[in-house]
Every structure is written in structure tokens, then in C-alpha cells.
Design a protein around this nucleic acid. Structure first.
Lengths: 417, 417
DNA sequence: AACCTTAGTTCATGGCATTAATCGTGGTGC
DNA sequence: GCACCACGATTAATGCCATGAACTAAGGTT
């Protein structure tokens, strides 16, 4: 877990890592720009870049004239060097998606989940099936898949087994990582869905360009992904960011978690609809499922609906303000299907409500935006898990076999005794 | 700000840093133990240790028999290698304290603050006077002082000027660091008082042995210091951890910050006494200042007092639960004078209240303890600021002049070509 | 007294990034 | 039209670093 920074070889790996990360994230760059961005000498940049080009990880991509000098050659990560598979295990369906290294989706597979509490084995089977399905669909060599990232809605222990605890799925200590590993040779990564979505928004969406952000997710449940200094904040056991079950109204409404006054009981979709039903003398909002009911509520213009939504905005503002006060982010990104629906209509008022409840200075330092990525962002974020690993390792961890044979060395001289 | 990890020299510095940190924090250690603790080869440990011993930073401190082998020599940081000064700028007094490198207090100076909103210039004058006062008092060469750490109650920008915003002092953008630097050659560090206290508790108090903790401080005001992976969580602009003004009771009591329902309005000393007064038909608790009034309240056994305190425990539990849900720490350390007073009497009930409001799993992963250090902990924490810097730099950044002349070495033998 | 055990040091080695010099490529001035 | 310049990138020489293996130190056991 803790990268032991000791030997001189590790330094090279670390430098390769920052170099690759820059190239991947900041698009095509010249060697010169890389040198400035990474504080490495041009000689080292050249050296390292040459290495990754030889390995096929990076390629030259055109050149740009410089005023009166040799044109600079731009570098980018080879899109087809490898492929990434991201999967989103939701409450109603499993989605599996294949990406190239530019994060362009190449193929998709979806499997509905029938049971309320799906069998882990069945989910694993779907995931493995999806893995082969998307590679076949896109005509990609399965051996070129760098990794499979899986997003689930519970907390995931950061161990080799990737033990999952997910109340919504009824999973208690399911070693999802181990189960998947048993079915494939491709490296498997499992993480919480909110965190993968947060990572996706940070790299490609509304969080772009910031290093400290909180991605606040409001759907049926309510959660948050906290990103600190560019990396996901996990806490001691990876369950940090449980925003939905923070107390916002002491002694208030009962939440489905059993406690009173949780934020989720007020701004979660269920909580909103419930409060509307109460305010509306027991008559619920129209619409079949939660999503259409909330949409209906947002479109209706009755006094009752407005009062409930107004209140919701207030609670949401207070909740966001708590995040701002505690985490002091540069940006809060509001997402989740209910969060987006609310945000699209009420964002200015949400900002105002937040301003009312947050401390002046931290509020002024934070901007509040909406998520920019579509519903596939969770799977895309999952696919960034193997990519993040690739970048962190500075490319393929060279297999010992690829090492030049030791036979070239002179025979070891016999030891004198 | 960002340690550019590039050259091979930086690696040595980094290794010296981890070595020194281990020696300093984990008491006397042998070279062997150091090798295991730092994942460095014994050869490197020997080499590096020899260097810091030559510089006088580390010294041998006795030896321990090992079963049947050569006794291991223990190493420790030389207590008198340098001295640290920590200062606590409180609302009523400025405290300046001198420590050796074992964090033993050697001298103390205190200056009362008369005005409610003290003049920054006067505070700086007190601090500089205190600096010379404590060195004289202890008979320490001022040149041997490695740094001055100053703790203030506001937010401190992490810039060279260390600009302070402190509402309680009436300071708005005071460049305290720059002002102090103008008056002394000794390196100056400024940070928030809650964060320095948190650091002190982490290294020497109730947080010892954990890497993820939240130090929750309850006094007149309410705040928190969040420690993640051993370092203080700062957020984008160093004002993270504003726990006191998170909304815990939506639409509830008015807080002195102007908002409604802040935690501080319920569990801050002022909030508690205020609530008691209201419950007690306008008659306040006995006692002159807040501290004795709260003490009186805690000792009294009237129904009203018990009800108010009971409620306070509930709110505090909910507040702590929010910290646990959001940060997922290994430990929550409750401190501040009011927090300690409450905790000493009610800790089990606070734990219960927290359990009621937190999610089961994060709660089970966190222990709740009381601060262990006394009222000087803030100054002590401030003194750790220069120490932290020393450790991070792996000792004095060697000035080129201090380099030993190469003449002592045998002449390099000419290499055959 | 020979041998074992554990701690710590020395030395040769392979790796690393850096600086300085060099090569490559295009435009500009006379 | 040619020398020259500006800028990008590469190569060569250099110094520093941690490592493993061999070795020294210091004590106990048989």
C-alpha cells in the first residue's frame, strides 16, 4: 500500500508516472512543455519519452511550428496501446463498457438485474460475460485489455480481495475482487460508484482543472466523493464521504437508515417525494417510478409542490454548505439524477441557500457546478481505475521475463573460502 | 509547495527525512530496527545515520543486549541539537514556550491581551519579545533556535506571508508571517491553533499510533482538526475543518455567525449556557466567566441542568457522527476546555449518542477518546511546526560552505582505462 | 578455544538525472 | 543565396545514490 520510495529505480518509475500522467491528462504536449510541467530536465524527458515510445505506450502526433525554430513534436498516449473496461453495478442493471486510452467508448453491454438483492455469483457471471462481449463486439484482442474496473454502490475495502459491503444490494462482506480474479486473468479493480463517478468528473467533467473538489451525488440515496489534491479521499477504511446520513435536522424526519434528521431524508428523491405526499394530504406525485415522479413534481406549479421544492433547496444548500465548511473545496459538483434535475432548475437558488449556510470565506472560495458527464460516467470512472494504476506505475510494470537474460553477465566467480 | 521529486539528490533527502522522522517519533531505535521500519537497506541506514551523527543531529544513546549477539546501539535525535519556540496567540493572552528537540519545555513567557481586537503590531512585538525572553530564561543561544511556530485562532493562508484571517481577533488579512520575519532571522511558521493542537495530540497525545483522526475541539467556539494519513487536512485554502458552523439543526437556534442551527450554537460553551438560561426561565448559571459557569452547570443536578446537558450530549453525538460519516477516521479525539469538561463526565453517553447518529460500520471503525495534553498543547503544537519542517527536509539543508573539505579523503585512485 | 549469533561497515556495482555540448530544422538579415 | 540565429531535441560525460555481498565487531555458548 505504501510505495516504499527507496531505490534509484523507483525514482525512474515515479518520473515516468508523472510524465505519462501529464501526457494523458493534458493532451498532446511537446517534450519541451513536458519538461516545464514536470520540473525534469529536457535530457531526462527525452530519455524517458524515448523509452515509452519504444514500448508503444506513447506516440508522436504531428508537430507545431514554433516561431522561427525547429517545430515541436507533440506526444500523446497511443490510444490503441491497450483497452479499458469499466462496469457499473447499479441497483437495476449492470453496465459494461469498453474504452480505448482516450476514453472513447467502443462497445457496450447491459444486463438487467431482476432481484432486489442480486446474487454476487450472478453479478460476477454477468461481469465476466460482459468483459468478453465488449471485446468481441469491438474486435479487440482480450489480451490488450489493461484492466477491468468495477463500480458498486457500497463501500469497498482496499484489499486484494476488494470486499464489498453494500446495503442496497444486500451484500455484506462479498469479496468481489477475489471472485472476479478467479474468472479472468485481466487485472481487476473494484471501487465505490460515487468515487469512480467523482474521478470521472474530475478528469473529464465539471471538476477539470481543480485539485480539491467534492462531487455531491443526489439520487435515491445521497453520497459524496471528496477529492483532495487530485486523489479520492478515502479515510481509514474507504467509507469516507457518507454525506447522505449526516444529521442536518436534529431530531427530524426518520431516514431509512433508522436515524433521525439525515440529509438523505430531506433531499434524497424518496425523501422529497415523501415530504410532498405528506404536504399534499397523502396524495403522492404522479408518475410510475421515482424518477418520473420527481420529474412530474418539478414540472408542476402548485403551491404545495413549490413549498416542498423550496424547502428541498434549503436543505440541499445547508448540506452543501456543510461540505464546504468541512472540506474547503475549490468546487462542489452536484450530480446524481435527482441532483441534476434539481440543479437544472434551481442551481442559482441552491447557490444562494448554500451561501446562507456556509461561512463567508470558504463559500467564496468554492464554485458550485453541475455534473457534466452523462449517465455512463460511473462506468467510465470505473474504467479509469486501471488507467490510474497504469499511470501510477509509469506504464507496464516490466515483467521479470522481459528483463535481459542474466546470462550475458560474466559467470559469477567462485567464492574463496 | 510541490516537492519536485526529480533528481537523485532528492531521494537522499527523502530517505533522510523518513529516517529522522522515525527516530524522532518512535524514540530510540537501533540501526537494524530503522532498516526494517523504513524499508531501506542496512547499508543505506548505516550510511545515512553516520551522516546525521556527524552533523550532530542524531546521537547514540546506550545499547541494548540482543540475545547472544553484538548489542544494538540505540539512536536518538540529539535533544540539544537545536531548540524550538512555540507560541499560542489566544483571545486573552499570548503564550510563548521554548522546547528542546524532545519537546521538553525549558522556558515560558506569557503576555496578557487587553483589547478585544488586539493590534497585530502589538502581538508581533509580544511574540518577538517572548522569543528573546525564553531563550535568555533558558540560557539558550538564540542562534540555536531552529524556528518559531505561531498558532492563531483564525485561518492562515499557506503562503510566505502567512496571511491571517481571524474573526475572533478582528484580523482581516494580517500578514503575520511577513511581519514576524521582518523582526527576526529565525524561520517563522504560522498555522491555525486547532491544527497545531491536533498535530500535538497526534504525535504525543490521544491520536498516537493512528494515521486518520479527527480532533474535535469544543470551547467557546467549535472546530476540528482533520488528520489524514498523518498530515493535517487543509483543503484548497487551509480553512477545512470548520465543524462549528455546520448545520446540525436546520432552521434552529441562531448562531453568532448569523446562520441558523449551527453546531456551535448548541454545543459551544456559549450555546450551552444560553440554552440553560432559556430553559431556566432567564436565570443564567452561576459563575463569573464562561468556564466557571459551565463548571457550575456540570456540577449542578437540577432537572433543568440535566435536561440541557442531556440535549447537549445528543447534539455533540450527532456532530461527532457527522465527522465520522464524512471523514471515516480511526479515532475521534475530543478536546477544547468545554469538550474536555463534557467528556470527562459524559464520554460513555457521548459515545452512545454518536452511535445513534453515525452509520454502523464507520462508527465501529472509530474510537472516541479525550485529549491527553494539557492547556499548553497549542503552543507545543506550534513548536512542532519548525520540527515538522526539519524532519521533512531531512535535517538542515546543508549550506554548501558547511560541506567538509574533500582533503580528508584519500585521493581517488586513477581509474584504468 | 572453536563456533554461533546478531549488529554494523566497507566496497564494488549498476542506475539515475543532470549539465554541457551537439545535432536538427526552420526562418531572417544582408 | 548564404551565413546566421532561434528554438527543439539528443548525446556524452559526470557525480551522486542505494544496493548486495563480503567483512569486521562484539558478545554468548559448547
Amino acid at each position: 500500500m505504501d510505495a516504499r520510495r527507496t531505490t534509484v529505480r523507483d525514482m525512474r518509475r515515479a518520473n515516468r508516472a508523472v510524465l505519462l500522467t501529464r501526457i494523458w491528462l493534458d493532451g498532446p504536449l511537446s517534450r519541451h512543455e513536458l519538461g516545464q510541467a514536470t520540473a525534469l530536465s529536457l535530457a531526462s524527458v527525452s530519455n524517458l519519452v524515448g523509452e515509452v515510445i519504444d514500448e508503444g505506450l506513447v506516440e508522436e502526433a504531428g508537430s507545431v511550428e514554433s516561431d522561427g525554430g525547429r517545430p515541436r513534436v507533440l506526444l500523446r498516449v497511443t490510444p490503441s496501446y491497450g483497452y479499458l473496461v469499466g462496469a457499473d453495478v447499479g441497483e437495476t442493471r449492470i453496465q459494461v463498457e469498453l474504452f480505448d486510452l482516450t476514453m472513447t467508448a467502443l462497445a457496450k453491454a447491459e444486463y438487467p438485474i431482476a432481484a432486489a438483492e442480486p446474487d454476487p455469483g450472478a453479478v460476477v457471471a454477468h461481469l465476466l460475460h460482459g468483459l468478453t462481449a465488449v471485446t468481441e463486439q469491438a474486435g479487440v484482442d482480450p489480451g490488450a485489455v489493461l484492466g477491468l474496473g468495477v463500480a458498486v454502490s457500497g463501500t469497498v475495502e482496499r484489499t486484494a480481495d476488494a470486499v464489498v459491503h453494500a446495503q442496497t444490494l444486500g451484500w455484506e462482506g462479498v469479496p468481489l475482487g477475489a471472485m472476479l480474479c478467479a474468472g479472468t486473468d485481466i487485472p481487476v479493480h473494484v471501487d465505490n460508484g460515487a468515487k469512480t463517478l467523482g474521478q470521472a468528473e474530475m478528469w473529464f467533467g465539471a471538476g477539470r482543472g481543480t485539485r480539491h473538489a467534492v462531487v455531491a451525488l443526489v439520487g435515491s440515496g445521497v453520497g459524496a466523493a471528496v477529492i483532495t489534491d487530485g486523489v479520492s479521499y478515502r479515510g481509514a477504511h474507504s467509507s469516507a464521504g457518507e454525506w447522505g446520513h449526516t444529521t442536518i435536522a436534529y431530531g427530524g424526519r426518520q431516514c431509512r437508515c433508522g436515524n433521525l434528521g439525515c440529509l438523505e431524508a430531506y433531499v434524497g428523491a424518496e425523501g422529497i417525494l415523501d415530504r410532498y405526499r405528506q404536504a399534499n394530504r397523502g396524495r403522492p406525485a404522479a408518475g410510475g417510478d421515482e424518477e418520473s415522479a420527481l420529474g412530474e413534481l418539478l414540472r408542476s406549479s402548485t403551491k404545495t409542490a413549490e413549498a416542498v421544492l423550496d424547502e428541498t433547496v434549503g436543505y440541499l444548500g445547508a448540506g452543501v454548505a456543510n461540505l464546504i465548511n468541512l472540506f474547503n473545496p475549490e468546487r462542489v459538483v452536484l450530480g446524481g439524477w435527482a441532483g441534476l434535475a434539481l440543479g437544472e432548475r434551481f442551481l442559482p437558488r441552491i447557490r444562494e441557500a448554500t451561501a446562507r449556510h456556509a461561512l463567508r470565506q470558504p463559500y467564496a472560495q468554492a464554485s458550485i457546478e453541475l455534473c457534466q458527464l452523462g449517465p455512463d460516467a460511473v462506468a467510465m470512472g470505473a474504467a479509469t481505475l486501471p488507467m490510474a494504476r497504469l499511470l501510477r506505475d509509469g506504464g507496464v510494470p516490466r515483467s521479470p521475463a522481459a528483463r535481459p537474460a542474466a546470462s550475458t553477465r560474466p559467470a559469477r566467480r567462485p567464492r574463496a573460502r
